[in-house]
């Protein structure tokens, strides 16, 4: 069987002025057996909730260990993850303010993909919240999920919570999608600030998007440059670039 290869670049950036240890975004990548594809996920812990970075990390790790392909798989997964979050948070003798905040629960957006290695390579995606999966072909956005336009990002997405009560009905917000990858294609997984920045570049034209993706793959300053001119919001960033070679 013909297969394709992937070049994967993943990086985390904390807000300017914060330490990387304070970053509440998370990412995970797991390659399958050689020649069998990969799984990748990014998550964005809401800064208004407690221990959300840990929740984001749990969600990404869980996704790459076993991808979510249905609404039921998402809902079945959450109780065990919440138990792990509870054990991590409440097992440490929190001060009064942290205890009160923890009782409000943690919230995070999650976006993930699983990619097969055949040629063309089939891929499936999952997204809940405002972290995005962007499929780029020939310098243009072929598909962006769950948000397709830079102007469509809001500040109050429905997110995955540690609190079962807050998760009532979230399956309606879950987006499942997929497609095929051919050599030269890129799948970009990004938390909201960078996803918005990338879609803005795409809306401005193909050359800007191509340069930005190349810079993100090289990891050579595109994020710093965007922040410096104010076109990229000062937010934590998790990004995974998967290029099909």
């Amino acid at each position: 069987m013909t297969t394709v290869d992937f070049v994967v670049r993943a990086h985390l950036h904390s807000k300017v002025g914060e330490n990387i240890a304070d970053c509440e975004d998370a990412l995970a990548v797991a390659s399958q057996t050689p020649g069998r594809g990969l799984r990748a996920a990014v998550a964005d812990g809401a800064s208004s909730s407690a221990f959300s970075g840990y929740w984001a990390a749990l969600l990404t790790q869980s996704f790459v260990a076993a991808p979510i392909r249905t609404e039921a798989e998402l809902l079945e997964r959450l109780p065990a993850l919440t138990e792990r979050w509870n054990a991590h948070v409440y097992g440490r003798g929190l001060p009064w303010h942290a205890l009160k905040r923890a009782k409000r629960g943690a919230f995070a957006a999650l976006a993930g993909v699983e990619v097969e290695a055949g040629a063309p390579a089939a891929w499936r995606g999952f997204a809940l919240g405002d972290s995005c999966v962007v499929h780029v072909r020939a310098g243009a956005v072929l598909r962006s999920e769950p948000i397709a336009a830079a102007a469509a990002f809001a500040n109050d997405p429905v997110l995955i919570s540690t609190d079962a009560e807050r998760n009532a009905g979230i399956e309606a917000e879950l987006r499942l999608f997929g497609g095929e990858l051919i050599p030269g294609d890129t799948l970009l997984l990004a938390t909201d600030a960078l996803a918005q920045f990338v879609l803005t570049a795409a809306e401005a034209g193909a050359s800007g998007l191509g340069k930005l993706l190349a810079a993100l793959e090289r990891g050579d300053g595109a994020i710093e440059a965007g922040r410096a001119v104010g076109s990229l919001r000062n937010d934590d960033i998790a990004v995974i670039v998967i290029r099909v070679s």
């Binding site: 800064s47 919230f107 109050d156 997110l159 919570s161």
Partner: peptide
Amino acid sequence: LEIGTKPANMALR
């Protein structure tokens, strides 16, 4: 006052 994202399903308690 917002500090970061406030999830739509995070009722304020």
